[in-house]
């Protein structure tokens, strides 16, 4: 009797203990798989591990960033970090960029995902338009908004003047500039959050909602009791990605404000660049980099632990 493939598949699926036979075609080649990791590991070592170790080493020196020699200075650069008022300013800015963008992106991203998860005309087009800025380089994004906001010939001021108002120097104050940077970063990456939440929403089986509706649940309680708990993995992914991106914010600031007025809109990342190349304090810049790495790592670990705990509770 000839055994059809379907019969075999059915028999195998019925037998929970079935494992592929150890013939030459099915033998697991774990050794080969491990070997195939090697190129990736080599790249990781070259572009991540080596610079990281080298950076930590540099943070204990007074290297100027280009001369052949340098001296060991112990913990001096780290002590300087603690007493540097400018570093405190840029660190607070970094937290504002990271937390501000993350909160806005979650609220807007989830809202857009909920709106565009429903059947409606033009849904695919709207999703594409909102996601499109994610594909644009932050430098281009910053330049577009600079051209929009600049004093002379800026599109926004042209509109204001056309409506009878006066030209405004939108990027002249710290508060205004920081808010604009948060807004531009949010507009650029809200599409990413939206896609993550859309994927999360579509993975929730509709039978849960149907069963809840039979029990009399509706609207807000469906969202609070079913959607939010089952979106926990999406929350974790989106929040961690946005937070890390915000903590490392660089390009938009460089293009939009150049870190000014003064040092007031710099992030730690842009300040590291200034300290390394312009102030010629590569050792101190490396200490800032190590501090930023440590802060991001701790934040990510704490956040992941907290979100995982909520997921398990849910």
């Amino acid at each position: 009797m000839v055994d059809s493939g379907i019969d075999t598949a059915v028999r195998r699926s019925a037998d929970a203990t079935y494992r592929p036979t150890a013939g030459p075609r099915h033998r697991p080649r774990q050794g080969l798989v491990n070997v195939l990791y090697l190129p990736a590991l080599a790249l990781l070592a070259m572009f991540t591990a080596y610079p990281l170790v080298n950076g930590v080493g540099l943070s204990f020196t007074d290297w100027d960033g280009y001369s052949p020699g340098h001296h060991l200075v112990g913990l001096e650069n780290y002590q300087r970090l603690l007493s540097d008022g400018t570093f405190r300013t840029v660190f607070v800015n970094t937290l504002v960029y990271a937390l501000g963008s993350t909160v806005l992106q979650q609220v807007l991203g989830l809202g857009l995902a909920l709106a565009l998860d429903r059947p409606m005309r033009g849904r695919a087009l709207l999703r594409a338009i909102i996601y499109l800025p994610v594909l644009v380089s932050p430098v281009i994004m910053g330049t577009i908004y600079y051209l929009l906001l600049q004093y002379d010939n800026g599109a926004l001021n042209d509109i204001v003047v056309a409506l009878g108002g006066e030209q405004q120097a939108w990027l002249s104050t710290t508060t205004g500039s920081v808010a604009i940077i948060v807004a531009v970063n949010t507009i650029q990456f809200v599409g990413l959050s939206m896609i993550i939440y859309l994927a999360g929403l579509q993975s929730i089986p509709t039978m849960y909602y149907e069963a809840a509706r039979l029990d009399g649940a509706s609207g807000w309680s469906l969202f609070r009791r079913i959607t939010v708990p089952l979106l926990q993995p999406a929350f974790a992914t989106s929040i961690v990605l946005n937070l890390i991106g915000g903590m490392k914010l660089f390009d938009v600031i460089k293009v939009l404000t150049g870190g000014g007025p003064g040092y007031s809109t710099n992030s730690v990342s842009t300040f590291i660049g200034l300290t390394y190349f312009n102030a010629q304090s590569a050792g101190y810049a490396a200490a800032m980099g190590v501090a930023l790495f440590a802060v991001i790592m701790i934040m990510t670990l704490v956040l992941n632990a907290a979100l995982n705990k909520r997921r398990l509770e849910a």
Binding site: L149, Q150, Y151, D152, Q167, A169, S172, S177, T257, G260
Partner: peptide, 10 residues
């Protein structure tokens, strides 16, 4: 007035 957004070209 546009000091913060002005470039050398401006």
């Amino acid at each position: 007035k546009d000091y913060s957004s002005a470039t050398t070209d401006n």
